[in-house]
C-alpha cells in the first residue's frame, strides 16, 4: 500500500471508496442526468442552428466531440421539420429533462442525507479531535464536489460519445417518418454542465449535512446504533 501524505482529500476519497455502492449510485445517477441534459440541449441546438452557419458549427463540433467532424460531413439536418412540431417536441424534451433533473437532485440529496445520518458518530469524532463545524463541512463538501466532477467527466467523455455514435447509427438506419438530429454541443454548454453538476452536488451536500454538522458534538457522540 502506497503511503502518501494524508490530508482531507485522502480522507474524502477513502470514504467514497469505502462506501462504494453509494458512491457508484450517486455518480451513475448524476452522470446519466448530465448526459441526458446534454443530449436534449444538443438536439435543441441541432434543430435551431442555421444550416448556413455550418462551417462555424463544424469547428464547434470538432472542438467538443473528437471525431464528430466526420459525422457532420455525412449527415445534414433535416430542415423540413415543421416549426410547430419542433416546438412541441422541444417542449416535451425540456419538460422531461426538468423532471429527470429534479428526480436526480432528490436521489442525490437523499443518498447523502442517509450517509450523513450514518456518519454522525464520525462527525462527533471529527469535532472532538479539534475541527470546527466549518472544517467538518469542508470535508463533506469536498466529497460532494468530487462526485459532481467525476459524474461530469463520465457524462462528457463517456456518455456523449456514446450518444453521438448512437445518433449516427440511428441516422444511418433512418426510416421514413423518423428523423434524427445530429447532436451538436456548444463548448459553453459543456462547461455549463460542469458548473451545474458540481453546484448540484455541493448544494445537496450542504443541505444534507448542515443540520448534523451544526449539532452539538456531544449529541453526535451519543448517537449509537
Amino acid at each position: 500500500m502506497a503511503r502518501g501524505t494524508f490530508n482531507s482529500a485522502s480522507y474524502g476519497l477513502s470514504h467514497l471508496r469505502h462506501d462504494l455502492l453509494r458512491t457508484v449510485s450517486m455518480i451513475s445517477t448524476l452522470s446519466i442526468t448530465i448526459a441526458f441534459l446534454l443530449l436534449i440541449s444538443s438536439l435543441y441546438f441541432g434543430m435551431t442552428t442555421e444550416l448556413s452557419s455550418g462551417d462555424e458549427r463544424k469547428g464547434i463540433l470538432e472542438g467538443t466531440i473528437p471525431g464528430s467532424l466526420d459525422m457532420y460531413q455525412e449527415f445534414q439536418i433535416d430542415d423540413s421539420i415543421p416549426e410547430e412540431a419542433r416546438t412541441t417536441l422541444m417542449n416535451w424534451l425540456f419538460l422531461t429533462s426538468f423532471l429527470i433533473f429534479v428526480v436526480a437532485l432528490f436521489i442525490i440529496y437523499n443518498t447523502m442525507a442517509i450517509a450523513v445520518e450514518e456518519r454522525r458518530a464520525e462527525i462527533g469524532v471529527l469535532r472532538s479531535v479539534g475541527f470546527s463545524s466549518r472544517e467538518v463541512m469542508r470535508i463533506f463538501l469536498a466529497e460532494g464536489a468530487f462526485i459532481g466532477l467525476i459524474s461530469w467527466v463520465i457524462a462528457v467523455f463517456l456518455g456523449m460519445p456514446l450518444i453521438v455514435n448512437l445518433s449516427v447509427y440511428l441516422i444511418d438506419r433512418g426510416e421514413q417518418g423518423v428523423f434524427f438530429v445530429q447532436p451538436t454541443i456548444p463548448y459553453e454548454l459543456t462547461l455549463l454542465s460542469l458548473v451545474l453538476s458540481v453546484a448540484l452536488c455541493l448544494g445537496s451536500t450542504y443541505l444534507a449535512t448542515k443540520r448534523s454538522v451544526l449539532m452539538s458534538p456531544v449529541d453526535m457522540l451519543r448517537h449509537r446504533d
Binding site: 500500500m1 494524508f6 482531507s8 469505502h18 472532538s128 475541527f131
Partner: peptide
C-alpha cells in the same frame, strides 16, 4: 490541548490505523 478516548473507539472505518492517527492533523 485535549485528547479524547471513547468507549467505542470511534475510529474512522475507511481509514487505516496510521491514517486514523493522522486525522486530527488533517488540515
Amino acid at each position: 490541548n485535549v485528547g479524547f478516548i471513547f468507549q467505542f473507539f470511534n475510529l474512522i472505518p475507511s481509514l487505516t490505523a496510521l491514517e486514523n492517527v493522522l486525522v486530527p492533523a488533517m488540515f
